[in-house]
C-alpha cells in the first residue's frame, strides 16, 4: 500500500467511530438565537428522525449540555463505560487496558507548545501516562475516544543541558521598557507598538530568546511585532529580498516556506550580526495586514535596521 492509502486508512481508523451528536442542529440554533424563546419543536423532532436514520448507532464524544433546548433532542439510551484510572501506568499498558475496556485509546504527543523552551533534540516522549481526557471515572460511550497524554522527558543522550524549566524562569524577567535584552537594543518600533510584558528563552536554539511587542487591545498571547535573537544561524533567512548588508526581508508560511505577502504568511526580516548573532523580526499576519504591504515592509526594515548590539 502506498503512503496516501496508508494515511487515508490511518485517518479513517482515527475518526471512524466519531459521530456528530444528534443535538447538533439544536445546538447550532441555540448559539444563533440564544435570545429567542421560540423553539421549533417540529424542527428538532425532524432532526431526531433524520439522525436516527443516518446514524444507526449514535455515539458521541461529548455529553450534550443539559438545557431547555435539549428537550427536543432525542433521549437515546447509550450504555456507558467508566474510564479507568491509568495515570502513572506505562502508556502501552494503558492503551491495551483502555482497549480491553471497550474504549478507543489514543496516545497523544505531549503537545507542541510544551517543548518549545527545550532543545528539540534533548527531549523525547515519556512512557508514563500523566493525563487522560476524559479523566478517570467519567462515563463515556462504548468505543469513545480516550486521549492518553505522556510528558516530554529529557532524552537519554544528546545535549548535556537539562531541558529548560518551563514553569517560571524561562523568561528574561522584567525588561523595563522591554527594549534592551540579550545584548541588543530595539531602538525603533512602529507607532503604537510596545512591549507586551512577556519574553521566552530557548525556543529558537541555544542562547536564544524572543520578545513579543503588541498593539493596544491585542488579545492575550498574541503578538504584533516579535523580535528573536539567537546564536543559531538557522534563524537567518537569506533567501529574501536583501534590503541592507546582511539583512533580508520576505514572508514565510507556518512550515517556513517562502510565500508572498498576505494572509497565512508572516513578514519576516533577518539580520546577521557580528559574533554569530542572528536577529529576526516578525510582523504578525494581522498586524502586517493592518499596515498594508508597502507600509509593513517599510516599517519592518526600519525596525531591523534600528536594532543595535549593546557593548
Amino acid at each position: 500500500m502506498n503512503v496516501e492509502e496508508e494515511l487515508k486508512e490511518a485517518m479513517r481508523a482515527q475518526v471512524d467511530e466519531v459521530y456528530a451528536p444528534p443535538s447538533m442542529g439544536s445546538a447550532v440554533r441555540r448559539r444563533r438565537r440564544r435570545s429567542l424563546t421560540r423553539f421549533r419543536t417540529a424542527g428538532a423532532v425532524l432532526v431526531t428522525a433524520a439522525v436516527a436514520i443516518t446514524v444507526p448507532v449514535v455515539l458521541t464524544n461529548t455529553t450534550p449540555t443539559p438545557g431547555p433546548a435539549d428537550a427536543g433532542a432525542p433521549a437515546i439510551a447509550v450504555p456507558g463505560i467508566v474510564v479507568p484510572d491509568v495515570i502513572g501506568m506505562n502508556a502501552k499498558q494503558a492503551y491495551l487496558l483502555l482497549e480491553q475496556a471497550g474504549l478507543t485509546p489514543m496516545i497523544m504527543t505531549p503537545g507542541e507548545s510544551t517543548v518549545d523552551g527545550a532543545k528539540a533534540d534533548s527531549v523525547r516522549a515519556g512512557e508514563n501516562v500523566i493525563l487522560t481526557s476524559p479523566a478517570a471515572g467519567a462515563v463515556i460511550e462504548p468505543k469513545g475516544l480516550v486521549q492518553i497524554k505522556v510528558p516530554w522527558v529529557p532524552a537519554p543522550t544528546g545535549s548535556p543541558e537539562p531541558p529548560v524549566d518551563q514553569s517560571s524562569n524561562d523568561n528574561l524577567g522584567d525588561l523595563g521598557d522591554g527594549l534592551t535584552w540579550m545584548g541588543i537594543h530595539v531602538s525603533y518600533l512602529p507607532e503604537g507598538v510596545k512591549w507586551g510584558g512577556s519574553s521566552y528563552v530557548g525556543g529558537f536554539g541555544a542562547k536564544s530568546a524572543t520578545v513579543p511587542y503588541v498593539t493596544e487591545g491585542l488579545e492575550e498571547g498574541m503578538y504584533s511585532v516579535q523580535v528573536i535573537v539567537s546564536a543559531d544561524a538557522k534563524l537567518l533567512h537569506r533567501d529574501g529580498e536583501q534590503v541592507a548588508p546582511g539583512t533580508w526581508i520576505s514572508s514565510y508560511g507556518e512550515g517556513g516556506e517562502k510565500l508572498g505577502f498576505g494572509t497565512g504568511s508572516t513578514l519576516t526580516a533577518s539580520r546577521d550580526f557580528p559574533g554569530d548573532l542572528a536577529v529576526q523580526v516578525l510582523f504578525s499576519p494581522d498586524y502586517s495586514k493592518s499596515l498594508g504591504e508597502a507600509k509593513a515592509k517599510e516599517e519592518i526594515a526600519k525596525v531591523i535596521a534600528a536594532i543595535r548590539q549593546e557593548k
Binding site: R124, A125, M222, Q226
Partner: peptide, 18 residues
C-alpha cells in the same frame, strides 16, 4: 503564534515511546 512562527517543525525524532 508566539514561539513557533518560523520554526514550526517540532522534534524530528518521532514519539517513540510505546
Amino acid at each position: 503564534v508566539i514561539r513557533e512562527i518560523t520554526f514550526a517543525a517540532p522534534p524530528d525524532t518521532p514519539v517513540d515511546g510505546p
